[in-house]
Design a protein around this nucleic acid. Structure first.
Lengths: 340, 340
DNA sequence: AGAAAATACGCAAACGTTTTCGAAATAATA
DNA sequence: TATTATTTCGAAAACGTTTGCGTATTTTCT
C-alpha cells in the first residue's frame, strides 16, 4: 500500500531486465553509463524506492542497530543515543531503541526478540538487575555483534565503553573529604553491576587514603522506586551519626537525596555535601547547584557507533575486540560541595 | 550468521512440508493438534526464530513504528515514547526512533527514508522549523498512517494529540497576573508551529481579559542556540521597562531564562515570576522551584499507540480519523510564581 | 454400502531484491 | 579474415516466509 513501484515494474517500464536495473541502481561496472542514466531518471520519475525487506532477506542484513538502555528519561542515555544516531545515520543505518526500565526480564525478552536478526548489532547498557547473563551469552555465542557502554557486562568478550570510574570516583571522594566530610556515604542502585563496583572501589580507596574508617551502613543500596528511595535516604540522614557527605553513583539517587533532605532540617552543603554522577544540563540550576561527575556521553555514543559501523560495513572484519575503552569524566564543582 | 535455522530446515527435520510447519506455528485450524505439538516442540528444540524480513516481504508489513521527535534530551518526549513503547511492545511492534534536532531538512530526510515501508506508521512531533509540509503531505497522499502529538501539523487530516494549549495557557497567564505581574512576556521557539500559536493566543486572551496592553516586544521568538537565547533573554530583562513575568511555551526557554537571570541582579520570583510548560520531574528542585504546566506525556503516548495498533492490526480499518484529541495539562504552582 | 463432507497435509507460486552464470554484440588482436 | 577479449545485458535461482489450491484420507450421513 504505502510502498510504491517495484524493481520489476520499473524494469518493465524501461524494457530492461530486473537484473540490469538492479545493477544500474547499484552503480555496477557492468552497466553502460547511458543505461545507468536512463534507469536513474526513470527511477526518479516513478518515485522508486527499493524495498528494504527484500534487500534484507537477500543480503541477510537489516541495516538496523538495536540500542537497549535502562531508562529513557536520563540525559546521559539520551546523549549517547544522539551520538550513536549522528554516526549511524550517515551510513544509512536505522536505530531500534528499547528501554528495559531496569527490569532484567524485559531485557531478556528484548534480547531474545533480537535473536531473529531484526538488527545487525546491539549497543547496550545493562539493567541494574542484570546478574544472570545467559541471554547475553547466547548472543555472543551466535557471533552477534554486541557492544556495551557504561553499564557493561565484563564476562562477554567484546568492546566496552566506560569512563574512568575508579579514578574519577577516587578524586570525587577526595574532594568531599577535602571539603571537610568526615563520614561520606555511597549511594548505588545495585551491588552487582560493573560500574557500581568500580565506583565503590574508588570511593573506599579515597577513604582509606584519608584514614577514614568506613561504616558499611553508609554504602547504601537503593531500589527503583523513587518514594522508597527518599524514605531510605531520609532514614539514613536523620540518624544520630548520619553521613555528612554523599557520593551518588547515579543521578537518580542524587535527586532522591535532594528530595529526602527537604524532609529534614538539614541544609546542603552546610550539613551535607553532595556529589553525583550526572549529565544533567541543569545541574547548575538546582537548589543548591549540584557538583557533578559528567561523562562525555555524546562522544561515547559516537565512538561506539564508529567501531560498530567499521565492523558492519567492511567485509571480513574480525569480531569486536575484547577491550575496554576508557573515556574520562569531568568533575564540575558547584555549590553542593562548597564550604560555607 | 546470527540467524539460526530456517522454516524449510525445520520442516525437513520433521519430514513435513514447509507449508504445514508454517501453518502449525501460526496455529492454523487446518493442522491437527498432534502435529502442532510436534512442530512446536521441535521448533523449541532447534531454537527456531522466524525471519522477520521474509515475513515482512510476504505480508507487506514491517511490524515497526517510526517515532520522530525534535529532541531526545527532553523529559516530555522521552515520556511519550515510554508510553508508546508500553503499548506497542505488547503487540510485537518495534520502535524506530529518530531525532530531528529541530531541523526541517533532517526531518525531510527521515520522512523520505520511511517512504519505502520500513515502518508501518509514523508517530511524530514536528520540528519547530517545519513550515513547508510537502514531505508530510506526500506521506498522507500515499495513505501512510501518520499520527501527530504536541507539535501537530493541522493541515494533514489525521488524528492528533495535543493538550488544552489555549485554555491552560490562559489559566497560567491568569495565575501570573493574579500574582501581581503587570508586564508578562511570552517565550517561544517559533511563530509558525501550531502549539505556539494556541499558547500565544491563550496568553493574549488573559492579558486582554485583565485589561493589560501587550507590548509586542514581549512576545519573544528565541532560537535553537542556548547561548544566544540566554543573551536574548538577558537583554530583554535588563531594559528599563522589563517584563515582570515570563510564560515559557517550552521548557528549554524557561531554563535559558533561569540562566539569564543569573547574569542580572534580578531575583525570582520577587522581580520576575516564571511559569513554563515542562515535564521535568525535578522542577521542584530548581532554585527557585519552577511552576510548571505539565502534559500527561506517558498516557498521551499510550493513547497514540492504542489508536495506531487498532488501525494496524484490525483488517479493513478506515484511515485515521481527522480529529484532535485533547488531553488536559496540569498546572503545578511552585516558588517561581510565589508572592513573597 | 455408497456418496458427501470434513480433516489434514503437500505443491507451488508469490513477495522484491541481488547475484551467478551465460550469451550476445562489439571491439581488439593476430 | 578468423580468433580472442571486452563490454553489456538477460535468464534464473535464491533469500525465508505465507497461502491458494489440490488431493488423499478419514468421518458422517442417507
Amino acid at each position: 500500500m504505502a510502498s510504491g513501484i517495484s524493481l520489476k515494474e520499473l524494469a518493465a517500464e524501461l524494457k530492461l531486465a530486473p537484473s540490469t536495473v538492479s545493477r544500474a541502481l547499484n552503480d555496477s561496472y557492468e552497466i553502460s553509463e547511458q543505461t545507468k542514466k536512463k534507469v536513474l531518471s526513470m527511477a526518479e520519475k516513478l518515485n522508486y524506492h527499493p524495498n528494504p525487506f527484500a534487500r534484507s532477506l537477500r543480503e541477510n542484513k537489516s541495516k538496523a542497530i538495536a540500542v537497549i538502555i535502562p531508562e529513557r528519561i536520563n540525559t546521559f542515555f539520551a546523549q549517547v543515543i544522539d551520538g550513536i544516531e549522528e554516526i549511524t545515520q550517515e551510513h544509512g543505518y536505522h536505530l531500534l531503541v528499547y528501554c528495559t526500565h531496569e527490569d532484567v526480564e524485559k531485557e531478556k525478552k528484548i534480547v531474545n526478540l533480537l535473536l531473529n536478526g531484526r538488527a545487525d548489532a546491539i549497543v547496550m547498557s545493562v539493567s541494574s538487575q542484570t546478574s544472570d547473563i545467559s541471554h547475553l551469552h547466547k548472543l555472543y555465542e551466535r557471533g552477534f555483534p554486541i557492544l556495551f557502554f557504561d553499564r557493561i557486562c565484563s564476562e562477554i568478550p567484546t568492546t566496552k565503553f566506560i569512563t574512568n570510574d575508579y579514578q574519577v570516583t577516587l578524586e570525587a571522594t577526595r574532594h568531599l573529604i577535602q571539603q571537610g566530610c568526615k563520614r561520606p556515604a555511597f549511594l548505588m542502585l545495585s551491588e552487582d553491576i560493573s560500574i557500581t563496583k568500580e565506583r565503590h572501589r574508588g570511593f573506599l580507596a579515597a577513604l582509606k587514603e584519608a584514614g577514614i574508617s568506613h561504616n558499611p551502613e553508609f554504602s547504601k543500596v537503593c531500589c527503583q522506586n523513587e518514594e522508597t528511595n527518599i524514605e531510605i535516604l531520609k532514614n539514613l540522614l536523620i540518624q544520630e551519626n548520619r553521613p555528612d557527605g554523599i557520593l551518588a553513583s547515579v543521578e537518580k539517587l542524587a535527586l532522591a537525596c535532594y528530595q529526602a533532605v527537604k524532609k529534614t532540617d538539614l541544609k546542603i552543603p552546610t550539613d551535607l555535601k553532595i556529589i553525583s554522577f550526572s549529565n544533567m544540563g541543569i545541574a547548575g540550576l538546582l537548589n543548591p547547584s549540584l557538583t557533578t561527575i559528567s561523562q562525555p556521553a555524546f562522544s561515547m555514543g559516537e565512538e561506539c557507533a564508529r567501531i560498530l559501523i567499521k565492523k558492519l560495513t567492511k567485509t571480513n572484519q574480525p569480531a569486536l575486540a575484547n577491550e575496554v575503552v576508557v573515556i574520562p569524566s569531568k568533575i564540575t564543582i558547584r555549590a553542593s560541595t562548597m564550604v560555607e
